[in-house]
Design a protein around this nucleic acid. Structure first.
Lengths: 248, 248
DNA sequence: CGTCGTATTGAGGAGGCTCAACTAAGGTGG
DNA sequence: CCACCTTAGTTGAGCCTCCTCAATACGACG
């Protein structure tokens, strides 16, 4: 299914073929397969790496704030961030969670539109816009890959729209869990990592914290899922889970 | 503020500098101004035009259906379309309305993810994906413009997220009207064209038709706006209107 | 001047929100 | 090691808004 380049799960011993910064997306055009694939070739990753600055953000660190000058875009090597905006009403709306191999740094007229904050410790590659321009000029094909990645993010934003369009809290929570499941391990796993807090989940789903809690509790009482600590969910009844999460 | 090239509202007499297919977006980078600008140069429009097929879609025509093979992207010359998906629940979610100078044709793995239908009579430029590839190879700068346009659409999707995140129907309707107002005439106008039906508005806002009706009626009863026929709204109290639409 | 799709209005019920009190977990300093 | 403190999570009661169902009005078009 996937072009499984030379994957090796061990630690980095003798210069493993550079795997970061890596970009993943479901392609725009037809291809053999259905899931996300790696967009950048080894050579392209090197090109990007050369012009990027590797940075580490401890959990909770603000990467940038909405309204500040947008000088860079970022590619995540490892970790999870949230991209959000605080509204006049005092509410916070999380526009997206970003994971390894994601691209973020959405700007408008040179200023970031959202605030981005690390949820877990994050390693990211910061690419200055000048470097980005240079990169695109040097290799137009890299530009194409960034375009496809942006299209991918756009699709995800539309999916988010569909999620929060549901009126029932249980269904929305189920759909988010399904997202997190696909994020991890190609989605055949019954244990889902949930790095973010329930409060973050509420802000993402457009619910109150209480509604999220009640929804998860109901899922547990019905024997569909079970929380293992605060940051992992176990799926007990996959059939019912999918039924809820897909029904839309 | 805008590069007001040679605008002339009359009919096309002696070869006016080709204005279509035209792409508009708020830029990614800093620039002098704040609204959307034209992305393509005259030469680039010619390049695009050469590889595109001009097509006319009467109102209500389906441009393409979700799930069908995504062979082309489209740039709108004139008219309005809706891009939507029908859910298993029987509900319809409109992901976006697209207007003149917009780009649509979002695909995943070579298949359209949404259905697109003309709301008004539409003139569009259909660009086959092969032609698009060729176009990008020929002029990487055009590719960049398509990237910026996609980023623009992504921002709009996020804004849509914020709209439907509101719980009050009146506020959501106000935000949509504000969008339509900005779409038309740089937004200094008190008369807003509303090409779509209230049912479409409901599907866009994630409300029932009845809720949309009641919300508009309340706006009218409070003397904030007034419907003139079915497809135009007049703003009576701009201050209150903005307060509602911005508050989020 | 009928007919179909769109729009409007009312009544009743469900679900999420707010407010409020309380519990659990994680981190820090003595 | 434990007391303390802070943040995250849980649960209940009552309110409010939107949804559903149902009946009716309007308007464009043939």
């Amino acid at each position: 299914m996937r072009k499984a380049s030379n994957r090796r799960s061990g630690g980095g011993t003798a210069a493993p073929a550079l795997r970061e910064p890596s970009l993943a997306a479901v392609p725009f055009l037809k291809f053999a397969g259905t899931g996300p694939i790696e967009l950048l070739s080894d050579a392209q990753r090197q090109q990007v790496r050369r012009r990027a600055v590797a940075r580490d953000f401890p959990a909770r660190t603000i990467v940038y704030r909405a309204g500040s000058s947008a000088d860079s875009v970022f590619v995540i090597g490892e970790g999870v961030v949230k991209s959000y905006r605080d509204l006049a009403s005092g509410r916070r709306r999380i526009a997206a969670f970003f994971f390894a191999r994601d691209l973020f740094g959405l700007a408008e007229s040179g200023y970031y539109v959202n605030t981005v904050q690390a949820i877990t410790p994050v390693r990211a590659y910061e690419i200055h816009v000048d470097a980005l321009t240079e990169l695109f000029a040097h290799d137009p094909d890299i530009e194409a890959q960034f375009l496809w990645k942006t299209v991918h993010v756009l699709r995800e934003a539309q999916h988010h729209n569909i999620i929060i369009g549901r009126r029932d809290a249980v269904g929305r929570v189920a759909m988010l869990l399904r997202l997190l499941r696909k994020q991890d391990s190609a989605g055949s796993n019954r244990n889902i990592p949930v790095p973010m807090s329930k409060s973050d989940i509420a802000d993402y789903l457009g619910l109150s914290l209480e509604a999220v809690v009640r929804a998860t509790r109901r899922l547990e009482r019905q024997g569909i899922v079970q929380f293992v600590g605060r940051h992992q969910v176990q799926i007990l009844d996959l059939r019912q889970f999918e039924a809820l999460a897909v029904a839309a």
